[in-house]
């Protein structure tokens, strides 16, 4: 879920939700419908909005009984503390960790590496997976696999990889880099970007060693219902909750 000023953004189209823009109602909806974990990404630019995020995290933690990760704009131990102390289970860092890699170390020393998710956005350019920052707007010279390894060495306990080439295409997860990523780091990996149908979940779990797969719009628009997805995966012998 992308959050701006305490509201879910990107189109969300559910029947039966009183306020579809309210992240707390949505979180509750998803957790009651079988989601295993939720990720909130704060795309608010202002300091005022950041305070709203802490309040939102608190409300979500009151309502749901599954784990959730919060990311976006976390650049200090103090930022992370405020979110964790209000009920977030994990903190995800992306651009702030590229600018200041020791942030990963500081966070994992303080809260344990199980709390620290390194989110990486990358694009395939000239036969290499190149990392981007600032929500995919700025190209870095980091290589996906090298950065992931460095992040894990610094203390990241999980990698959330989004393929920018696949994101929004609904053509399936980026199997090739996910396969390699799962071979080069020894922490859980969440696949993100490109999911368009239930078969894509099956594909990513069968062909790579990732631990979780993330999707947003297919759920938001009701194109995939979580209970149906889980039934489909179970009948295909994929071990899920």
């Amino acid at each position: 879920m992308d959050i701006k000023d305490g509201r879910t953004v990107k189109g969300i189209n559910f029947e039966g939700l009183i306020d579809a823009g309210d992240p707390v109602s949505l979180a509750k909806y998803y957790s009651e419908n079988g989601a295993d974990e939720l990720v909130f990404l704060d795309i608010t630019a202002t300091l005022e909005g950041r305070k709203t995020m802490v309040e939102m995290v608190r409300k979500v933690a009151r309502e749901i009984n599954i784990p959730f990760t919060v990311g976006g704009g976390i650049s200090s131990v103090e930022d992370a503390f405020n979110l964790l102390n209000n009920g977030a289970d994990k903190i995800s860092v992306n651009s702030s960790a590229i600018k200041n890699p020791s942030l990963i170390k500081d966070l994992s020393n303080r809260f344990g590496n199980q709390c620290v998710v390194l989110a990486i956005d990358a694009k395939f350019i000239d036969a290499k997976w190149i990392v981007f920052q600032a929500g995919g707007r700025i190209q870095t010279d980091l290589d996906l696999f090298e950065w992931a390894k460095e992040g894990v060495n610094l203390g990241a306990g999980e990698i959330l990889f989004t393929s920018m080439d696949n994101d929004g295409t609904k053509s399936g997860f980026a199997i090739d880099p996910l396969y390699k990523l799962a071979k080069c780091v020894n922490v859980p990996i969440i696949a993100s970007g490109g999911c368009g149908k239930v078969e894509h979940f099956k594909e990513v779990f069968e062909q790579t060693n990732v631990d979780a797969a993330l999707a947003a719009s297919v759920f938001h628009f009701g194109e995939i219902e979580i209970p149906a997805l889980k039934n489909y995966l179970k009948t295909n012998n994929i071990d899920i909750r």
């Binding site: 295993d36 599954i66 784990p67 344990g112 590496n113 199980q114 999980e158 922490v187 859980p188 631990d211």
Partner: peptide, 29 residues
């Protein structure tokens, strides 16, 4: 892969957990 993170079944349950088999959420090294 460490941390062990995610939903896993509990087996051989007894005592206060007697009869429960559904997956529960782990996050630990």
């Amino acid at each position: 892969k460490v941390p062990h993170m995610g939903w896993n079944e509990i087996l051989e349950t007894k005592g206060i957990l007697n009869g429960l088999i559904d997956p529960v959420y782990f996050i630990h090294s």
